[in-house]
Design a protein around this nucleic acid. Sequence first.
DNA 1: GCGCTTTCACTTTTT
DNA 2: GTGAAAGCGC
Length: 726
Amino acid sequence: MYSENNLLQGLNDKQLQAVTLPHVSALILAGAGSGKTRVLTTRIAWLIQTGQTSPMGLMAVTFTNKAAKEMLTRLTSMLPINTRGMWAGTFHGLCNRMLRAHYREAGLPNTFQILDTADQLSAIKRVMKVMNVDDEKYPPKQVMGYINSCKEEGLRAHTVDAYDGHSQKLREIYDAYDQQCNREGVADFAELLLRCYELLEREPHIRAHYQQRFQYILVDEFQDTNRLQYLWLKLLGGAHNSIFAVGDDDQSIYAFRGARVGNMSDFQRDFQVQNIVKLEENYRSHSNILDAANAIISNNQNRLGKNLWTSAGKGEPIRIYDAYNDTDEAQFIVDEVNMLQNEGVALGDIALLYRSNAQSRILEHTLFSSNIPYRVYGGLRFFERAEVKHALAYMRLIGNANDDTALLRIINFPPRGIGARSLEQLQEAARQNECSLWQAATNKVGEGKLGSKGLDGFVALIRHMVDQAYGIALGEVAEMVTTVSGLMAHYQNDKEGEDRIENLKELVTAAVAFSKQDLGNHHNMEEDADLMTQFLNHASLEAGDHQADVGHEALQLMTVHAAKGLEFHTVFISGVEEGLFPHEQAAYENGGLEEERRLMYVAVTRARQRLYLSYAQSRMLHGQVRYGIASRFLDEIPAELTKRLNSKPVAKSYAAGGQYTAKPGVPPVAHSSYPFKIGQSVRHGKFGEGVVVSYEGNASDLAVKINFGSAGLKTLMLEYAKLEKI
DNA sequence: GCGCTTTCACTTTTT
DNA sequence: GTGAAAGCGC
């Protein structure tokens, strides 16, 4: 049997203090590798085991499904209890659950569908077309960003400020978009949160119900919450409940998508937080790595303040490699990986991190030619694949034919002769009758006015599917849809359709598995939706894994963002260059440089034993050669913690960006008549140190362009400029 | 209406 | 270098 002692055994003083806090709100500042998840799950287990609450009284909120799952898995290994009564999940998942339970009060149809980002964008494009908005002046992606950030601030079209013609137009589009979503009975991701927030705010009895129920609310990754998520928590927390917020301001790397680190200090103020527990003992890395991370992050001004320490030894020095170019960098990494493997380090315990996805190509290429198995995280996930989304769109139409987004996706796929022309007529008819596209289509067919033969066939097809779907199991619906729609046949005729057919089959398997899993669960009385709606929601809210072939030993490739929360024996951070890391487009933004620095902090703290940092003097990016200098973050690491593998450190100053793209046409290689190679570091009496970027003019009158970092980009006449190689 | 060719832009990302 | 979107010819 489990005893309380057993549960709390092995916790350090701070962890123990956090786990056993009384029923008050608390902020746990959990540094990287300080046992954050353990504290969170042990707290839950302890609350239940000591009888302070039952699973029913608990709500645990995370950002990703993965984090939610991990928490539940760990919890069940700690306590032999059923966690079913506990609400654990993502903000979106929990809001969805509440909206389903109170769909009438929330003003939604009981089968409302969730738009993912791609669906939302196409819905916005549609609204803009109807409104005749110039998409050059208002790029749909920007409009989407505007709408989502309004929603994440808790603002509706009628509450948001507009100062000029431009913002008034945006507000108008926002309003029309929301109306369209209501008409079609769909909700985007941000809408789930905002709608739920408004529901709780508007309906005192619903709010009271959840406030009474969830006496204990636990929030993971609190530094990543946005304004609306914070307001939602505040509403649920009410006046008496305890919110146990766990986070790390130094690992806040999602400001670009609305995360507000300021929520941490607001929380302290709004909830009169007396208990701030700092978890600073790190159980992951050796001290050289932690000292480097501490040194880097200490350059940030806006911090709550925290210093990681470990009782492990200094460990290995941080290895720094100065590569000639990106190929050289990749080859260096390959050589080191081979060496590590010979030393017995498992390939899966080695990570290769980069700032932006574009960097992975050259790395993959080099790994491939060296026969090193690797796995790239990122890219399309299962439920985001085109063929899968097509099949899901047919299923959505079966459930709700008024879902215009779904209809537009497949009205002519596979191709059935409904082109832009007939579509426009259909949309015009729908506009005039203020009805859905489906209703407009059935009207046309009913009147015998065949806009096109294809339309007739389409209406018949969907009706046939609705008939077929009646009374059969979810898996059978999926199977029927993939064949009757003609998707299977279409991809069978396609030379490259093999993978797509596999994915469609996989979708059927997933649907079958989903029904079984659902039968196993007690049906939740609060959830009214039918199984297919639930399955479609599952597909939207949990887009599936990032194609990871588990089991195969492979080197792990991912962006630094994707690496957050993970740890590895060895970590390579590549492209540690000005302009790339910190990224030039981030460095200019307000607070952008500090976020880049936190990103570097996250990257460094992923390593347990060994850390490599590498940069390249030149690299191919966006089809052009770029010349860079080493990142300022490298200089922020005390030299005694590092080991330069091939060159000496050079003191320099930095410009924002610090990189320059050579003009096309300028030879990227050294010319015999040029005294300096492109990429050569030089010293100038007035401007200091810089990098040769390009040559201009003819041989008799040659000018050289040099990037002097903080002194800027200068074009100097070679004849007069006194330049010294360094 | 469909498919091929050209053009353009391009950090980070979960739900 | 690459993928998506727009433009053009059949």
